[in-house]
């Protein structure tokens, strides 16, 4: 998939500014979560493009040399394109699902990359205390971080329980959705099939070329 070009008619200043701000926030946060930072390294050089349809905006994300780059323009071919309205994308990000059906979000390219991003980011664990301590001092940082931890500890299991109950009900009881493992296996098979068909196409092209050369 070729990278889209920013057209010369559009002023890229604003989108680039947005990309710069996002890049700064994400990378600052990642300095306080070294485990996630290391996890992201396995996604290095794979470009994820996110195209928002309403409002129109396209940003590129790529892990490069120990940092997540957020860009308004990318010369490297895109591995995965995620397309949808801002509302649908936010919904998808806040309620990770194994299926994109009826989510309003469209995916092109390597779907596996998306689940890898999701997997790494689901383990995000920012050390707020460390982050706050460098700005506010140790004591206030400790108290704020403790309050944050208590709030998170209360919300996390409850939201997880609710989500897991809904997921179980839909996949096991009603059987209207496939299980996560089935979807993962399906995605893997699709990727394998795509790679095999790419190889077949390359082999056919080579045979056709050889045949043309022999005829000459």
């Amino acid at each position: 998939m070729a990278a889209d070009d920013v057209t010369a008619d559009h002023d890229p200043t604003y989108v680039t500014a947005l990309a710069a701000v996002l890049e700064k926030i994400v990378n600052t946060a990642l300095t306080y979560d070294p485990a996630t930072k290391v996890g992201l390294q396995k996604l290095e050089n794979h470009v994820l493009a996110v195209q928002i349809t309403e409002p129109q905006l396209k940003l590129y994300f790529v892990v490069l040399a120990d940092q997540l780059d957020v860009m308004a323009h990318c010369e490297t071919p895109v591995a995965t394109l995620l397309q949808g309205s801002l509302q649908d994308l936010i919904k998808l990000a806040s309620q990770p699902s194994t299926s994109l059906a009826n989510s309003g979000v469209r995916v092109e390219g390597q779907i596996g990359l998306l689940s890898e991003y999701q997997q790494v980011l689901s383990q995000l664990d920012i050390d707020w205390e460390d982050a706050l301590a460098s700005r506010l001092g140790d004591l206030p940082a400790h108290q704020i971080a403790q309050a944050l931890r208590a709030a998170t500890n209360w919300i996390k299991p409850r939201s997880r329980k609710a989500a897991s109950f809904t997921a179980d009900f839909l996949t096991e009881e009603l059987r209207v959705l496939p299980h996560k493992l089935e979807v993962d296996q399906y995605v893997q098979q699709v990727d394998q099939l795509r790679e095999a068909s790419d190889r077949l196409e390359a082999r056919l092209q080579r045979l056709l070329l050889q045949q043309a050369q022999q005829q000459q």
């Binding site: 200043t13 680039t16 710069a20 860009m71 323009h73 490297t76």
Partner: peptide, 14 residues
């Protein structure tokens, strides 16, 4: 803003 202009230059450089 010069940082934004330079960032876009880097992005376009490939």
């Amino acid at each position: 803003v010069h940082r934004i202009w330079k960032k876009f230059t880097i992005e376009l450089s490939g």
